[in-house]
């Protein structure tokens, strides 16, 4: 189902005059969530940039009803909301978690794992700007190797935690990666997730001009470069089958990928990297794609193990 821009109504998908920094990928992403899910969704937002982006009461700069919740509890609060709606006969409401990489990969991982294992019928979106941006650019589990942050002044020594793979291992019906550089792809994935029953996970790559140290006008371009260099592969895992998304398909072949340096050189957080560091990141990319290759080829005759249980 291709996304046609002209079909969208002329309404506010996000509320202007909010507290987001110029060029913010989160407000971009939130617009796409509204474009995809319309007026039948409520958001659950744990502590993070998006808590602040809403701005000051009695107004809110995000165009959704929202339950703001403590940092570690987004998935469980959403599970509760969904259960509440179900018990009140409101199966039409999409409960969507909108959490950062801190709220997902780190402090919120336990609650999310619980909700995924229980199969709670929610869409969980991790908007990944690869550090704790709201508190001032500290490293997170999702910060890539080599990146400068205010708690890794000489660059992070560990690789990025691969949360989408962790969620695939949970055997949930739908896992996808997306990027604010490819809104149509993200919108399509959201629309698909909305038709799937059970726990849906979408990991949205969201380059942050403030934390990554780049010109705020470059947010979409940097997001696209992450995909084109193979650093952020777009894929979809639905009912046990992994498929590389169309915007990433070309970069399955190493030689077709844009050189990683093109992506790194635009970002101040990677300015100090040595060639040896770049090589470590390139090896990370190769390994990432090798895993994807394995997952893509993995035989899966009848959906997830959850399906076999008749869930």
């Amino acid at each position: 189902m291709p996304v046609k821009l002209r079909d969208f109504p002329r309404t506010h998908f996000n509320m202007p005059g909010n507290a987001a920094c110029p060029g913010c990928p989160e407000t971009m992403g939130l617009r796409y969530v509204k474009m995809a899910l319309g007026d039948k969704a409520v958001l659950v937002i744990p502590a993070g940039c998006s808590s602040v982006i809403q701005g000051i009461s009695p107004k809110s700069g995000i165009n959704f009803p929202i339950l703001n919740i403590v940092f570690a509890a987004a998935a469980s609060a959403a599970a509760g909301m969904k259960a509440g709606f179900e018990m009140l006969g409101r199966d039409d409401v999409q409960v969507v978690v909108w959490a950062g990489d801190g709220g997902t990969a780190d402090i919120g991982l336990q609650a999310m794992s619980g909700a995924a294992e229980r199969g709670d019928d929610i869409i969980y979106i991790c908007v990944d700007n690869e550090a704790y941006m709201n508190t001032g650019i500290q490293r997170s589990g999702a910060t890539p190797y080599g990146a400068w942050t205010t708690t890794t002044w000489t660059g992070k020594k560990e690789h990025k935690k691969n949360v989408p793979f962790i969620m695939i291992a949970h055997d949930v019906p739908y896992v996808a990666t997306a990027s604010v550089g490819y809104p149509q792809d993200f919108i399509e994935k959201l629309r698909k997730a909305a038709t799937v029953k059970g726990f849906k996970y979408i990991h949205l790559h969201a380059p942050c001009p403030v934390g990554w140290r780049f010109d705020p006008g470059l947010t979409p371009e940097i997001a696209q470069l992450a995909v084109k260099t193979g650093m952020w592969p777009l894929f979809e895992y639905h009912n046990g089958k992994l498929k590389i998304s169309s915007f990433s398909r070309l970069y399955r072949v190493k030689e077709k990928r844009v050189p990683l340096k093109e992506y790194l050189k635009l970002q101040g957080r990677f300015r100090h990297l040595k060639d040896s560091d770049v090589k470590i990141l390139e090896e990370y990319i190769d390994r990432l794609w090798a895993w994807l290759d394995l997952l893509e080829k993995a035989p899966n005759p009848s959906g997830t193990a959850r399906d076999l249980l008749g869930k």
Binding site: V44, I69, A73, A75, S76, A77, G80, A83, G84, A111
Partner: peptide, 12 residues
């Protein structure tokens, strides 16, 4: 999570 889920359901 128990109280967060309880609150979520109640908010709905």
């Amino acid at each position: 999570s128990a109280l967060a889920a309880t609150l979520g359901a109640a908010a709905a």
